[in-house]
């Protein structure tokens, strides 16, 4: 009994982080129709920035967010402006190929800068544990989950009740009509792309305590993120958070009750099955 509770708690915590990774991708997809295959490599970029700041200035990963967030937003804005915008009108496949190229650039840029060994950027809170009845949880994961849900709620409020949020939704629903309202569609797209990458800076800092980093991990983060976004229905933020939990919990249950290998396969298998039988995602897209 306590084993299953432990697995559920673990899956919930990991899954909420997956949800946050996916929110950025969903946001970008909803206004620009872009699927960024370099998404996971940007997560790694954020993690390595934390590592660099920790090595150089002994900054705690949680503190370094104040530096990595604006940095990553600037990087995201530049990537959009110089690389993605010029081919925005082209076929979706072209954008996929371009972002695959960017993925190689980021991944190997990191490899060249930091080498091929695993790195860690420790936090003061790293080894703290909490006991909730029979369940033991790591404090960094609790922080990560709390932050993920706060960000999801914040994003929801932003999109519902602010002018910039309504502009983003307007561009998503009808870009031409949005332009006629005086919305600068190009600027909204660039800002959401920058914000999507910025979210990854936060996600990276939350992942760093307790997660060793290696440049080659990017593709797997991309794959997991894609899975969560698609399961969530691409643009439905509630669906995306829910899908993150489904994937996180299935992964942790699978690892405990099946085997390591089957546990790792389970999210992909669930993805393929849902994709085939419910292509619109878990929830109806809103």
């Amino acid at each position: 009994m306590s084993e299953i509770l432990q697995a559920l708690a673990q899956g919930f915590l990991v899954g909420s982080t997956y949800g946050m990774l996916a929110l950025g991708m969903g946001l970008v997809y909803s206004v620009s129709g872009i699927v960024n295959f370099a998404h996971g490599d940007f997560v790694l970029l954020g993690m390595y920035l934390c590592f660099a700041l920790a090595s150089a200035f002994a900054l705690d990963p949680y503190v370094s967010i104040f530096i990595t967030l604006p940095t990553m937003m600037a990087v995201g804005g530049a990537v959009y402006y110089f690389l993605i915008r010029p081919i925005a009108g082209h076929h979706l496949l072209m954008v996929i190929q371009l972002t695959l190229g960017v993925s190689l650039l980021v991944q190997n840029g990191l490899l060249m800068s930091f080498g091929g060994q695993f790195h860690r950027a420790p936090s003061m809170l790293e080894s703290k544990l909490w006991l909730l009845g029979p369940v033991v949880v790591r404090v960094p994961q609790v922080i990560s989950a709390a932050a993920s849900f706060s960000i999801a709620i914040g994003l929801f409020i932003l999109l519902r009740s602010t002018d910039i949020g309504r502009s983003i939704r307007a561009v998503h629903q009808n870009a031409r009509a949005a332009a006629l309202m005086g919305i600068d569609v190009g600027k909204v797209r660039m800002l959401t792309f920058a914000a999507g990458i910025g979210l990854l800076a936060i996600a990276a800092a939350l992942l760093v305590p307790g997660t060793p980093m290696h440049p080659s991990m990017g593709l797997r983060y991309t794959a997991i993120t894609l899975i969560v976004v698609v399961l969530g229905g691409m643009t439905n933020f509630v669906g995306i958070m829910l899908a993150g939990l489904v994937i996180g919990i299935s992964e942790s249950l699978g690892t405990i009750y099946l085997s390591d290998t089957l546990g790792m396969i389970l999210p992909y298998a669930i993805f393929v099955i849902i994709m085939l039988f419910r292509p619109q995602g878990l929830l109806k897209s809103a």
Binding site: R166, A170, Q173, N174, R176, A178
Partner: peptide
């Protein structure tokens, strides 16, 4: 615009707010 092009997934209030954004 021709064909109205209202934002279908937004409420009337939100559409009006967007007009004056």
């Amino acid at each position: 615009p021709e064909g109205r092009l209202v934002f279908p997934d937004m409420t009337i209030r939100e559409n009006l707010l967007l007009g004056g954004q």
